[in-house]
Design a protein around this nucleic acid. Structure first.
Lengths: 218, 218, 218, 218
DNA sequence: GATGAATGAGCCTTCATTCAT
DNA sequence: GATGAATGAAGGCTCATTCAT
């Protein structure tokens, strides 16, 4: 609940909170509950309680539980996209640097918090029953995916590597998803700090294996 | 429902066999419903209907809905484990051959059917709210994970590659998970046959990049 | 709750009740609650309690509260229609006799019970918000209305009365509705037996005034 | 919302006047919503929106939703009563003229608007669950009812008709209620202008049948 | 006076589970 | 073994009412 407001303890201070602040507060609470109880067991009462508000407020701000969840995923998607964009928009960066920034950026604290990760995975698991979830993230995923593929193709051409660009792109992206997934299943044994460090190590190792000229051994 | 063994019509089939057939029939129905509706929306009525049976039967055979789901995951886990074991238990196979068989084997038809994949992912998504799911798959995962790590270490030593064994193992396993996950989100656009082919291609490309001496270009 | 079953007091005797019996039992309970609390204040819990059953049963048998109410009105409509049909299907009856039977028949015990009347009026009051209620009763109303109009026209022609057939038909039908309505608002002051007697008296007086040759003074 | 008195723009209009204007505005909005959605589906939010005001205002002016509805019915009752009184208070009118004015007056535009009619019927339908509604209209109804009965008795004595005064009075009043009710159920097929014309025709036909000497054929 | 965010009780509905047949 | 009517707890949603601004 890192984004959650700073509830002042004055009585009824919350009455004056603006609509956007309330919405964000409820989305943060949703992420927190999703992380703790998973998707199927999440109730609006849980979310309201986690936000320190009453149950009725959710339908007031999001029309329905479904609306809340959809907006929660939208929030995560936007945040993830903005983080990526911020990472690659460095003037003067080479293609290799941008690719590296793309991959490592997924493990930045802003997007790689234990709660958010678990929330993401909860949504992945439900996306088959609810196509709307896939639609929410699809648009921006495609943009990113194309950027990764273009970067790989460019490095392959530039370095003269004997690699299948499509196969390599797919492998890289699968690895990223898998590394996120891994955190959840090992979180009880390892801290997420450690997990992020391990993930970055794996990414660097793989980049070095794929494109040794562009990513020399560290 | 490809796995469902059809009711044997042998006269006086033993009670035990009959019971197991019913259980398998219900587990197959569960996988089918999980794939279609996801975890959160699955009801015992759905499963019973998919199995062509009545609602009350599930509690008779599995005590509870939770029991059914746990046994369903157990079934998938066992099947996955057996498939792996069958793939690596080839007398005279080299370490490289066994590693390759391990990775490619995850895309065998026996375990890589669209319904089963979606069922797996539904369980992954819920595993945070229900630690029991992680426990079910953990034991056998560890065995397999160690085998992969040992194989990588052996190949690295044998080939003199400058690779971090742990990082590479983690990358390989993450990639496998990610490739499975990918199937679900792209299933509307690509057939799962095509997905499996792409996955195998990526695996081969990566193995070649990591261990060029053991996996020469195809 | 005149139609309501005769609940045997054996424990769980209700478990074996057939679907139709249960439905009728619930419809009777609905009429009873409608009469006591009106449409707006009726809850499914009230109905279930009045029927001596649990709340969940209503959705099992009628899908929803709305479904229950619609079927309740349908039941009242059918009953009313059958009562009318039974009253006019007397072989050898003259037109005047059939008209008289039609009008007086609305005050037969089978359809003119206090609870049923109040239920009818509750539906009338809601029919603007829920057009489906009007649709349910419309079809059969039209048939009856035409029969009354045809009978009036025939009597007018036969008796040579200087009457506007349409205006007279409308007046007769309005009077019937009004007499039903009246019962509700005076029920605390007069018994419904007395109301029915008064209503019959008014009907006879009006028929005599309209068609003196066919309905001579009693 | 034809009745709503527009905000007088006189400077420094008294607080009292302003308050009454708001109340009338809300009562008109209530009638409009009752006509459109019926009693059970009416919400204070609907009424507030129809009045162009915010939800909280209703409790300020009427203490509660129940208060608003009771005052709405009171308003309709008063208006109806005043219309009747105005119709019969013609100096020099005969008993027959006053009876005729009483009956036809119910179809004056001031009281016979589609919305008001539907609102009336909504209240009738709920009067069983809420005795207060009956109480509101009862007092004035009795006065009017007695006047009609006295008029009928006088005409019967005067004309020497062989009629049961009580039965005839009841028939006349029931017919009036029924003609109002009829408008609602036929409003989709006929305009309320046409309905009023038909109703007047029926009334005239009935008066002529009952009291031919006092109401000669038109 | 007026607003509208917030509350919380009450309702409809779903659904896992039970059990008489 | 199997069925499916019945139960009842739990959850999402609505909405009258309150109250800080």
């Amino acid at each position: 609940m890192t984004t959650a407001t700073l509830e002042t303890h004055a009585p009824h201070a919350s009455r004056k909170a603006s609509k956007d602040v309330r919405r964000l507060q409820l989305i943060d609470a949703t992420i927190s509950v999703l992380a703790r109880k998973g998707y199927a067991a999440l109730t609006v009462a849980d979310v309201a309680k986690a936000a320190g508000l009453s149950a009725g407020i959710i339908n007031f701000h999001f029309d329905s539980k479904d609306g809340l969840l959809a907006e929660c995923l939208q929030h995560l998607t936007n945040e993830f996209y903005r983080n990526w964009k911020a990472n690659i928009e460095r003037p003067g960066a080479t293609t290799a640097e941008r690719l590296r920034a793309t991959l490592l950026g997924d493990f930045d604290d802003a997007v790689f918090s234990p709660d958010k990760l678990r929330a993401w995975i909860a949504f992945w698991g439900e996306s088959q029953g609810r196509p709307v979830y896939e639609e929410i993230s699809a648009a921006k995923d495609v943009e990113r995916s194309r950027a990764v593929e273009a970067a790989c193709a460019e490095l392959i051409a530039d370095g003269g590597y004997a690699l299948d660009s499509a196969a390599i792109t797919r492998a890289l992206e699968a690895m990223l998803d898998g590394l996120w997934l891994d955190v959840v299943s090992t979180s009880t044994r390892r801290s997420h700090i450690e997990s992020a460090a391990n993930a970055r190590q794996s990414i660097k190792a793989v980049l070095h294996s794929f494109f040794p000229k562009h990513f020399p051994q560290t």
